[in-house]
Design a protein around this nucleic acid. Structure first.
Lengths: 116, 116
DNA sequence: CCGTATCCGTGAGGATACTG
DNA sequence: CAGTATCCTCACGGATACGG
């Protein structure tokens, strides 16, 4: 395939989709939060405790972000006092395979860089 | 599966490998540099021109980093003046599949967030 | 051509205190 | 419990000038 501007454009576009994926995956906390929820933690405090080291400010911010990206759902229960539960969406499930690919490559890469 | 500390540890380890992969993939320029080299650009100036917008400082830094990570090789030719060529390693090839997965997920994700 | 040296701005994330 | 509100730090990367 020739190295023309058409290919160059396609490459730029392709990187844009990659960037979309990375926006979710490459932040410090997002994956950890989703993992914590997958592990059965639904409440704010539970997630905070499970992860350990995250500040409420960050947790709050990232939860909002994940909800906007349709990866989790925030449900408010009208108890006394009010109860809030976060759950992962089906769409978040699709992350599992992707993360697994990243993990596998990460291991392979480490072997390639340092001897096996 | 129970939410015990063993599972928690495994999760942390798994995220470490993911982080290794992200170190390569999620920087602003690394992928673009590798793509530029794959496209046939071997010289510093060629890569710089191909990408457009990268400063020599950044290009230099990232090239060193990529070499340390065994993704590219720097060859010095004893011409007058000296010529330098960067080439991608076979190990870098393994990135192609991974990047493709990221791209595919990115597209799917965008459809999930905004309507299809 | 192939970089290095300096200086600088920004934004992600941390620390801590506080509210309904 | 479920967050907000402030203030702060620091690394990432940008801009520009220079050197072999």
């Amino acid at each position: 395939m020739p190295v023309n501007s058409k290919e160059h454009d396609a490459c730029k576009k392709s990187l844009l989709a990659v960037k979309d994926a990375l926006d979710v995956i490459s932040s410090k906390w997002k994956l950890q939060i989703i993992f914590a929820i997958w592990a059965g933690n639904k409440r704010f405090k539970d997630i905070e405790r499970q992860i350990g080291g995250i500040s409420p400010r960050m947790l709050s911010k990232e939860l909002k972000d994940l909800e906007e990206h349709k990866l989790i759902v925030r449900k408010v229960y009208d108890t006394q006092p009010v109860t809030i539960e976060y759950t992962a969406t089906p769409h978040a499930e699709t992350l599992k395979e992707l993360v697994d690919k990243l993990r596998t490559w990460g291991i392979k890469h480490r072997k390639a860089v340092f001897g096996k």
